[in-house]
Write a protein that binds this DNA or RNA. Structure first.
Lengths: 241, 241
DNA sequence: TCAAAAGTGTTTGTTATACACCCATGT
DNA sequence: ACATGGGTGTATAACAAACACTTTTGA
């Protein structure tokens, strides 16, 4: 309990104790997929100035801790999710974005395969849950801005870099991939052309396995071939969907 | 002189006085074009812990000042350049990036038409000058990382958004534009094809003027039509070079 | 008249789009 | 048998790349 008070940000004493950076926080925007619906991960504060309210999982940075490490640590402590790499999204620095005192926040984002993780609310979070990205409860501070910015960023990124694969299970079908793009970009795509475009990139390796228990012809399963992508990238290939 | 001491970061007292955020700074990466060479703007510290060394123009943030405003203010105070919009690049947060104490820095960038500005070294800067982006003097702290990241970011951005025009004078020729792309991307391009690609976008409006005083056929001058770009963008157009 | 850059035309191969079609499987 | 999605083929149009060519101008 006393450790909670030190690390979580919704109830950090002002000024924070030695060892914690003042005026700088981190917030994580975690995208996941449930079925073919795009979700984000939120926590409900169990105590502190934002008690009872939903927020992005975030908090303060230790004095001797790299920003990237802090993002990873906070995500794990608050939700139980251990993700090796969070990418920086943007820093939000309006004067009055945080009540009580000036706090600038660095937003990070990641895409995870939602079903791979059991959520475990930790620290000052009394609940952690996935919400449809277009249908969240009211959020604290400027977190709605962060979500909106992050969604636009994701929509742009997903067309230019093969990040979408992180949202799917390791083995997936081409239709799952297509539905992922349709969910993120909110558009319809042509099935034959989508298949061809993806396959021509040589980024998927066949698992030589088929779907199980579906009421139609079983689709081939593929996995994303990261090595192939890195090789191609070195040769000047750029991913485009 | 006493005001210099308060605002500049190379010699800010530790801890900084009330009214200045602790542990958070801003650094600006300003690209410019001289002839067809890509340059960046550096200042030489005249005092403080980095005295005599070259650095990106940056400093600390006031407590009641938005991050974006701080970036603009610092650029003007240190170099005399007044630029209305700086875009956020990335936040650099390694533990030991700054000597003496923990400071996280938010890097901003902008592209300016170099000849439009007279440089005036201000605050703790005793000199401000343009340097070829591939041939800078040694830089303080992690500023080389920021420059490298920024250059890669620019090379990517310039292909997907019409930001390159900011580096040129208001009226420019198609060859100037092509040389700009060649300088930033470090490649050669085909003149006829480049012309056609650009003209087909309908983003340039002719000035109905020609170059003056050149020892060859005078080229038409164009200006970038921002309104046209915004209209097209709304209709789903995406800039690609 | 020559150099230097402006600017046009044409050929060729590649890629995107639309959509018709057949295949496999569980109910 | 039929619904459902898996998966293939193909015609057309748009586009990119390469490069030969003509035009204009000052020195």
């Amino acid at each position: 309990m006393s450790e909670k008070r030190i690390i979580s940000y919704s109830n950090a004493p002002f000024p924070p104790p030695k060892g914690i950076m003042k005026g700088l926080s981190i917030d994580n925007l975690i995208f996941g997929l449930e079925g073919s619906a795009l979700k984000i991960l939120l926590i409900k504060h169990g105590e502190g100035i934002a008690e009872g309210e939903w927020a992005l999982p975030g908090g303060f940075v230790n004095n001797k801790e790299d920003l990237n490490d802090a993002a990873r640590r906070l995500l794990k402590e608050l939700t139980g999710i251990e993700h090796h790499y969070l990418e920086q999204l943007k820093t939000f620095g309006k004067v009055d974005r945080y009540p009580a005192e000036r706090v600038v926040t660095v937003a990070y984002y990641a895409l995870v395969s939602a079903d791979n993780y059991a959520l475990i609310a930790g620290l000052n979070a009394c609940e952690a849950a996935w919400f449809n990205v277009h249908d969240t409860p009211p959020l604290v501070f400027d977190h709605p801005d962060i979500v909106q910015y992050g969604l636009q960023f994701l929509q742009h990124q997903v067309r230019h870099r093969p990040i979408g694969f992180n949202l799917l299970p390791e083995k997936f079908t081409l239709l799952q991939l297509q539905e992922l793009y349709e969910a993120i970009l909110d558009i319809k795509m042509d099935k034959p052309n989508f298949r061809r475009k993806i396959m021509k990139m040589n980024l998927l390796s066949p698992c030589n396995e088929k779907q199980q228990g579906v009421a139609h012809r079983a689709a081939n399963l593929y996995r994303f071939d990261k090595d192939a992508y890195e090789n191609l990238t070195e040769q000047g290939f750029t991913f485009e969907v």
